[in-house]
Write a protein that binds this DNA or RNA. Structure first.
Length: 136
DNA sequence: GCCAACGTTGGC
DNA sequence: GCCAACGTTGGC
């Protein structure tokens, strides 16, 4: 069964639109062990919310894991890995951080509990709640 | 631009 | 191995 995740990106660095234009990307730049462990936990076919930090502060789309963790090509340090992600679809309505914070069902969401973590896991329940908010 | 949260580093 | 100092992230 597929698992669910959430990744954050600063739009000026790598936005959803850029992601869609590229068609696929490797998720690099993770330099935090907890986030790294989450990357390693991703399996092919898992779904990933794409969140814009700093600007927007909202989940804008859904991506899919197309290749599981492998050595980060941007460094020789074997501590770090990347995964390949592909855009699946844009949310009908973006879901903002404020909306998520306001919903009691999402109080345990990694994004809210640990705002600085760039890759976090999302439970099936949380995924469902957010999809509902997004207008699916 | 400020500040809180939190991870990392380094002295002991 | 503890803990203070420091750096970074990200919301506001």
């Amino acid at each position: 069964m597929a698992a669910y995740w959430l990744v954050k990106s600063e739009p000026f660095k790598y936005s959803w639109d850029q992601f869609v234009k590229d068609g696929q990307t490797f998720w690099d730049g993770v330099r935090n062990y907890q986030a790294r462990n989450n990357l390693r936990g991703m399996k092919k076919g898992d779904l990933v919310f794409f969140y814009h930090s700093n600007e927007g502060l909202e989940i804008v789309g859904i991506a899919k894991v197309v290749k599981e963790a492998y050595q980060d090509p941007t460094t020789d340090d074997t501590n770090w890995v990347v995964v390949d992600l592909k855009p699946v679809k844009k949310l009908p309505k973006p879901v903002t951080l404020a909306q998520m914070k306001a919903d009691i069902r999402l109080e345990k969401l990694g994004l809210i509990k640990q705002g600085r973590l760039s890759v976090s896991s999302v439970t099936v329940e949380e995924w469902g709640v957010i999809e509902e908010m997004a207008g699916f």
